[in-house]
């Protein structure tokens, strides 16, 4: 099965999961070859991948396959179900009509662009705030540092829905309804405590020696921040950005409250918009299911083509605690 997938995909993923994803760090614990593999597919030997060796017997291998396949069937079933339902009435025409005759005033691909745009605002705000605050909390000395850091972390578990009413009001006052900024900001507000925690922890792991040296050279904090801290924190920043995009893609709450313009509908919101626009009978129901399947396609492409990117980001900058 694996051999039937396009080679380029294979390459990306194979490298991804065979290697330590962080290219920057020394590869302490691995006993195999050079950091970059030749761009050519090859079967890995046992020495290549120590994990390969832990499957010791035929029976074990069989059990692993059996369990994986069972779970894969369970995991794939919902999508299968949506496909079945989408073909129940009118067949493939349901898919064609989604593109020729957009549902709910918004072309289906536009919803993903909207999610992406919101994600960009979300990520930009979170990264800006978290990196600067992370620097302050990890590299600057000032009275009350730990206390204020704790105060920031207090909001780690606050759910968006708890500040729904005031955000509604704030958005109204700032005139930000129907803008990407209006949705990106509250999303960022919810992510920032996590971002600050991440950047501060990452910052503490950046050796002080480099900074001290720069300090002795007479570099000011702003130069140190920009020329040393930011570049060294790159993996954590990427991690944060990836998470921001994923969370924006999944966020239903803010767009559903703060967007009224149909052309701004995000992918998560589209599910409810379409369900209301297509809620009137058998033909509609099939078409709605077709729209669900189409909405899932970008996620498939994301996993197939972007997984290396995601996992790279996720792993390199994670918190230790």
């Amino acid at each position: 099965m694996s051999d039937t997938l396009p080679t380029v995909v294979g390459l990306e993923l194979e490298r991804e999961f065979a290697e330590r994803p962080n290219d920057d760090k020394p590869r302490q614990s691995r006993n195999d070859g050079p950091p970059r593999r030749p761009k050519r597919r090859r079967r890995r030997s046992r020495a290549d991948n120590p994990m390969r060796g832990i499957v010791t017997g035929k029976a074990d291998r069989f059990t692993i396959y059996a369990l994986l396949i069972l779970m894969a069937v369970l995991f794939a079933f919902p999508l299968y179900s949506a496909i079945v339902k989408s073909l129940e009435v009118n067949g493939i025409q349901n898919y064609v009509s989604l593109f020729t005759d957009p549902v709910g005033d918004v072309p289906i691909w536009q919803t993903y662009l909207n999610s992406l745009a919101v994600g960009a605002v979300h990520a930009a705000i979170v990264v800006t705030v978290s990196v600067t605050a992370g620097y302050a909390f990890s590299k600057l000395q000032f009275r009350g540092r730990e206390l204020s850091f704790s105060a920031v972390l207090l909001f780690l578990a606050v759910p968006g829905i708890a500040i729904l009413v005031p955000v509604y009001r704030i958005t109204q006052e700032l005139g930000l309804f129907n803008t990407y900024l209006g949705v990106g900001m509250p999303e960022a507000a919810i992510t920032i405590p996590f971002g600050v925690l991440l950047m501060r922890n990452y910052g503490r792991n950046i050796g002080d020696s480099l900074i001290e040296a720069a300090n002795l050279d007479g570099a000011g904090h702003f130069r140190i921040f920009w020329n040393i801290f930011v570049p060294l924190s790159r993996p954590a920043i990427i991690n944060l950005m990836v998470l921001c995009f994923i969370w924006s893609l999944q966020d239903f709450l803010w767009p559903s409250f703060l967007f009224t313009d149909p052309s701004l509908t995000t992918a998560a919101q589209a599910v409810s918009t379409f369900s209301s626009a297509l809620g009137r009978g058998a033909g509609d129901l099939a078409r709605f299911n077709a729209s669900l399947v189409v909405l899932a396609v970008p996620a498939v492409l994301f996993v197939v083509f972007g997984l290396r990117f995601i996992v790279n980001g996720l792993t390199t900058g994670s918190t230790k605690d």
Partner: peptide, 10 residues
Amino acid sequence: AASLTLAGCS
């Protein structure tokens, strides 16, 4: 890409 999109939408 994102900033382009943003500029466009604003």
